[in-house]
Amino acid sequence: MATTTTTPMAFSGRPSVNWTLTFQRVITLVVILLLWQFALMSGLLPKITPGVPDIVTSIFTVVTMGNFWVGFGYTLFAALAGWLLSCAIGVVLGLLIGTVRPLDRSAALIVEFGRAFPTIALMPVMMLVLGATTNMKITMVVLAAVWPVLVQSILGSRRLDPGIVSTATVFQIPKGLWFRKVLLPSALPFIATGVRISASIAILAAVGVEVLTQVPGLGRLITLAQEAERWDNALAYLFFAGIFGWLVASLLGRAEGRLLRWNRQSDD
């Protein structure tokens, strides 16, 4: 999905700061926060909504608390483990399915079904089979996050240029070399996109499982804070969940851009 990032530091080496824009952004943030506060004081927002000062204080106190870091660690571990597993499984299976024509036709329906399946619906079943454990959480993450990588790997390996394929056949290039030098580079741009999307889904799934079960993590902290009516803390956790998601998405987006620069150049 193409997004509009129009920050001025796009491709130049040194980020040049647009001070007018930054100033306007800060003003906007202040206005939003003031509106929140006024809406709260005038009774437009529900009474339980915490004020801006409370939330800001919570954000700073939460960072100093051990259980926040422990919860964050649990979420990070499960999301990371599930994501890495998804990438490994998705790439291997995807390249296999994408290059072996009969396999491609046979597996098409299963892949289509799997990617459209709202995996979180299986959570209660997984709870029964595996219990409220970290393994269950990682399994759920893999079940949710493997599909983008798989689908993109299949698409990527299908895209092999027929000319290159025949050249490789004619020159009898060994299988291992063919895999490393022909298949992988041509599928890589697609795989990279799948890997990036699946990272966001992995975080979503890990937090989702934590919200719904007793499995410890950031999502569990949010549920607990809500049940204890500590709305300021809940919003602070939510803020960090957002920062986490945003960091992962933008880091992977940047890595993808750097890794595939050669591809972009050859495209235009």
């Binding site: 979180i120 975080i203 999502g219 709305w231 969940a241 957002g242 998405a249």
Partner: peptide, 29 residues
């Protein structure tokens, strides 16, 4: 364009919040 440039970072931040984390808050409210 101006509005888009100003709001861009905020939109990207809000979008990055894992949607499942919002559920307890919304149901609580």
């Amino acid at each position: 364009k101006r509005l888009r440039l100003i709001l861009d970072p905020y939109i990207h931040f809000v979008r990055s919040v894992p949607q499942s984390a919002l559920v307890p808050l919304i149901i609580g409210i």
